[in-house]
């Protein structure tokens, strides 16, 4: 039976993990490879590295990170952040990443999705969507630039468009819920999951196992992504998975 995936997200800046400093048992908690190894051992199904480097020089360091992770780990991982053109995709995928995620760049120039998908196959292209509820729209509006700029897109319309253009997966972040630890945005997740035929990763709001359970059942998500609850050891992936198993969710 296909299992639901649990995906920790690591924010990487100039080659260093910027959250997750509470791993006292690690020699170097700022090393992305060390943290990746730790999560792999804990049972993470995939990893997402989000490059938040501000400079081009900083962004070059992600390629080294990708090479080192690919050399050591046998689980799939995605790289996002700073992917603006086909060349950027080639750089990280050739370094050993399995997927790239695109967000703002895809909204500014949707052809980028098709270019990546035609070149590497749809399974390599994740479209990340940041969405926030909008009273005027009576639905969720898609934002770019890390949630700073609103677009004209309603979330399910953009998700459908992204898939039509070759997205193999949708990484959906609720801006309303992000950082709240009060649970995923179930209505949003369900709306997008039902709108597209490709897998949807729910993100934003994870606080405990029940939240993941709700996202997988009511929200119809295929995977759940979280950062802080894993980084700050509020729950381990192992504990989370055994609780989900008790609740009847198929996990690895």
């Amino acid at each position: 039976m296909l299992t639901k995936r649990i995906i920790p997200c690591l924010d990487v800046k100039e080659g260093r993990v910027v959250k997750g400093i509470q791993f006292l048992n690690l020699v170097d908690a700022g090393d992305p490879v060390e943290l990746a190894r730790f999560y792999d051992k804990e049972g993470a199904d995939e990893l997402v590295f989000l490059d938040i480097s501000a400079s081009h020089e900083g962004r070059d360091t992600i390629v080294e990170v990708v090479e080192r992770v690919a050399a050591e780990l046998a689980i799939p991982f995605t790289v996002g952040g700073g992917i603006n053109k086909l060349e950027d995709m080639k750089r990280v995928l050739r370094a050993g990443a399995d997927k790239v995620s695109v967000n703002t760049a895809a909204l500014l120039r949707p052809e980028l999705i098709t270019e990546g998908s035609d070149y590497f196959g749809a399974q390599c292209i994740v479209v990340a969507i940041d969405a926030k509820y909008d009273d005027e729209l009576e639905s969720w509006r898609v934002y770019t630039h890390g949630g700073r700029k609103p677009t004209q897109w309603e979330v399910t319309e953009w998700a459908r468009e992204a898939v039509k253009r070759g997205a193999g997966e949708i990484l959906l972040t609720s801006m309303d819920k992000d950082g709240e630890k009060s649970g995923f945005n179930l209505a949003l997740t369900k709306a997008v999951s039902e709108a597209v035929t490709v897998p949807v990763i729910a993100s934003g709001g994870a606080g405990n196992a029940d939240h993941f359970y709700d996202a997988f059942t009511e929200g119809k998500a295929d995977a759940g992504l979280a950062a802080s609850i894993f980084h700050y050891k509020e729950t381990s992936i192992g504990e989370l998975k055994s609780e989900l198993q008790k609740l009847g969710v198929a996990v690895r």
Binding site: L2, T3, R5, D45, A122, Q123, E169, V198, D222
Partner: peptide, 9 residues
Amino acid sequence: KVPHMGWNN
């Protein structure tokens, strides 16, 4: 959903 994506036994 298609693709069949993820961990299966």
